[in-house]
Amino acid sequence: MAPKRTTASASREATPSSSSTTTIPTTPSRTVVSKGSQSPAQIAAGIWENYQDKTPQRTKLVDVFLAFLVVVGVLQFVYCVVAGNYPFNAFLSGFSATVGQFVLTASLRMQTNMENKADFVAVSHERAFADYVFGSLILHFFCVNFIN
């Protein structure tokens, strides 16, 4: 998924760190979408288009990782339902590793999102990434410890 979008928005994403420029051109596209609110398919297509236009490249990468985590989590859960949860510790630590990683990544995504800049005065992007690594380290330490 990621490579396709890379080509689509590569030109715009040359300077992702100063991505305040990227948010400005999105406003016209948003108004375009809001005009047509008829069928669900159109809405979905509108969301998708909007997303592709608006989102910086790095954030897309994060989103792919999030989608991957959701898939893994769903797989684990389905396995647990179908095949039983016998090593419950193992299932739990695997599942919570997925959920925890998802949440941490979502946090990273929020913190690096330019729209939320007013909320995170104290958190620069580098700081956000350092926090993310710190949280992930703790998370995986606990998971490994818990897995039995």
């Binding site: 919570s96 949440v103 979502a106 995170f120 606990f142």
Partner: peptide, 19 residues
């Protein structure tokens, strides 16, 4: 987003820690 970040980080890590 601040609420989401702080609570979800706390909950995901804290629950694992408590277990």
């Amino acid at each position: 987003p601040r609420l989401y970040v702080s609570y979800c980080t706390w909950f995901a890590l804290g629950t694992l820690a408590s277990m």
